[in-house]
């Protein structure tokens, strides 16, 4: 995919015609990463669902680039583990999803699924029940499933929630590799500013119905963040990485 993967003009997103966030303008070139940040309930996931075509825009225009094909990684706890799927079954759901009948593309589906599991480093989990996996392993299986759909855009909803430090760092490194080596466009929903500071090239910041969008360096500055969050914010560099800290109770 070349050019812009995504373009929004005066875009309003919401539910049943009621806007949650209004007037978003952004252009995301293919191969870049957009961090969508804000507190719980701010409208981050609503924006992501609109981009994925699961919700219609309330107003404005949203244009997806040529060849836009999204792979979606939902929050791990949004999937009911009641069915004893193996990890391979979960990934195979998205591989050759265009083939309707079970006996068509069976071998190709399995090959694509195993490749995707290997790609995210959990090939040996293929035969294990999905519900018995740890949070980090499930997240990787869901990422493998998204990759098995051969996406040009990878959308992840709170992918680091519930992960320990090592699993989080490993997942983020994998996303960086997919973007840098394979030119995949990444849409990353998170409530953690520090995560997008490192991983994203652009940011859409949503808070209390207000929003700001732009390049990371332009948005993650105290003078932009403090009015949005209503408290002092520090942006420091630690070991070459940008760290954003809110300081509640202090005067800006």
């Amino acid at each position: 995919m070349t050019g812009n993967a995504l373009e929004a003009r005066a875009l309003s997103v919401g539910w049943r015609g009621r806007p949650v966030v209004e007037g978003i303008d952004l252009a995301l070139p293919a191969g870049e990463a957009l961090g969508i940040v804000g507190p719980n309930g701010s409208g981050k996931s609503t924006f992501l669902r609109t981009v994925l075509g699961l919700l219609p825009p309330v107003a404005g225009t949203l244009r997806r680039g040529d060849g836009f094909r999204a792979g979606y990684v939902p929050q791990t706890d949004s999937i009911d583990p009641v069915f004893p799927f193996r990890a391979l079954d979960v990934v195979a759901m998205a591989a050759r999803a265009d083939a309707i009948l079970p006996f068509t593309a069976g071998r190709e589906r399995e090959r694509i699924s195993r490749e995707a599991l290997d790609r995210v480093g959990v090939g040996r989990l293929a035969g294990l029940p999905y519900r018995d996996l740890s949070g980090g392993q499930r997240q990787r299986v869901l990422l493998a499933r998204a990759l098995a759909s051969r996406p040009t855009v990878l959308a992840l909803d709170e992918p680091t929630t519930g992960l320990d430090l090592e699993a989080e760092a490993s997942l983020l490194a994998l996303l960086r590799r997919l973007r840098e080596e394979e030119g995949m466009t990444i849409l990353l929903v998170t409530h953690a500013l520090t995560t997008v500071a490192d991983e994203a090239t652009q940011v859409l910041l949503i808070h209390g119905g207000r929003h700001r969008e732009g390049a990371v360096g332009e948005i993650l500055r105290p003078e932009v963040l403090e009015p949005l969050y209503g408290m002092p914010v520090r942006v420091d560099e630690v070991a070459g990485r940008r760290v954003v800290t809110g300081l509640p109770g202090r005067t800006a």
Binding site: L54, Y72, P74, S149
Partner: peptide, 23 residues
Amino acid sequence: TALLHRRLLFASFDPEMASTLGI
């Protein structure tokens, strides 16, 4: 149900991802 079991399961297991893939 035999022919469509994959899609029926996908649609109930994770309807959002299924919709994203055009199901």
